[in-house]
Design a protein around this nucleic acid. Structure first.
Lengths: 200, 200
DNA sequence: TATGAAACGAAACGCATCGTTCCGTTTGGA
DNA sequence: TCCAAACGGAACGATGCGTTTCGTTTCATA
């Protein structure tokens, strides 16, 4: 008895002429995302994605040359970009940031991010995409730190970029070592409060 | 023409009776390490290791049930454990720590560590081994921070464990984002100096 | 001294995925 | 009108997977 290949009830797509079919792209990314959530990284194979999306493997390889490219595309579709808001003091601002990313990273969509980091350690293309995303988020975080600095909240000589790097490092370590249940506010205090000017 | 399978000139080993052959273990770990260095993670397959070590796959699977287990074993053989030494002040102590790990992580042996972190994101056994190692190193680092605290160097309320976590996070982030050339002393200052009591 | 147990290399098994290559169909754009 | 490009589908050989079987070697036990 042939094994079920998952949901294939969708009406089969066809070429819509000499141009890319958006429905195909969507179907493939949907399939890839589902497979990731259901079976983890090792379930994300080109074969399985093609089967599930009812797409030809040639089509898959044309647009996403590798498994890593597919991984990136899946993440790009669902990545959450935290909009930093100044909570009046740095600790609360960073705590809010930690609260957001920890919550997001615990969702099926967010779980993909840790796989991206992992894949980046051996896939140059993924590493490049990750680096771009990291710098983008670092800039946003650094800006938030800058608000505190402008307010005179920070000790002299503190560089927002360096502090933002440290803040981000703490978040990544929690993600990679399965500690996303860390209390966000306490972590923010442990990482940041040393750089705040002492109250008189 | 049959393709060369690498160095197989070694005299073939045999059973030495009803006990594990140390030469076999060494040959396999050597082969695994070489493959890792030469071809990266994707070059580390059970097939290739067995071929290179002139070992049976059954032997391989008996002692290392998975690729992850092999990865751990390779790392365990060569892992460097930094012996923290108090340099008189925390920044210098941590700078020395960063200097050591960055240098080690840039060696072929040390490069394996980033692969371990990557593998741990999808392999439970590797994650467990990594967590053990992390806690061990965290304890050592925390102890070094404790020296500074005992000396009265730290601001009140600083918890050595939390600070050590932050220090380690900064190191991991540099490893995972290819920034091991970061200046160790400057990084130590950026991460740690906020927690030092202000000089009068 | 005889026998069983365990480790070893080697070969083969069926299965899955790889990345590529064809094919026939569909349809937009020149 | 016709070429070009995208599409699904099927097949290709190659490779790794994890397991099994075989014949061997030698230690440990009886």
């Amino acid at each position: 008895m042939p094994e079920s290949t998952g949901e294939c009830a969708k009406p089969q797509r066809r070429s819509i002429g000499a141009r890319r079919n958006p429905a195909t792209e969507a179907a493939i990314l949907d399939a890839a995302g589902d497979l990731l959530r259901e079976k983890g990284v090792h379930g994300l194979t080109m074969e399985a994605v093609a089967r599930r999306a009812r797409a030809g493997k040639a089509t898959l390889y044309k647009w996403w040359p590798s498994c890593g490219a597919l991984l990136i595309a899946v993440y790009e579709r669902s990545k959450g970009a935290h909009q930093h808001r100044d909570k009046g003091n740095l600790v609360d601002t960073i705590a809010e940031f930690y609260r957001f990313v920890f919550a997001f990273w615990q969702t099926p969509e967010g779980q993909v991010f840790r796989l991206i980091i992992a894949e980046a350690q051996s896939d140059k293309d993924v590493a490049e995409a990750l680096e771009g995303y990291r710098l983008e988020r670092l800039a946003a975080l650094s800006e938030a730190v800058g608000w505190a600095q402008a307010r005179g909240e920070l000790r002299e000589g503190v560089e927002p970029d360096a502090l933002a790097d440290t803040i981000m490092a703490a978040a990544w370590l929690r993600l990679l070592t399965d500690r996303l249940t860390t209390d966000p506010h306490r972590l923010a205090r442990d990482v940041v409060s040393g750089w705040i000017v002492e109250k008189q």
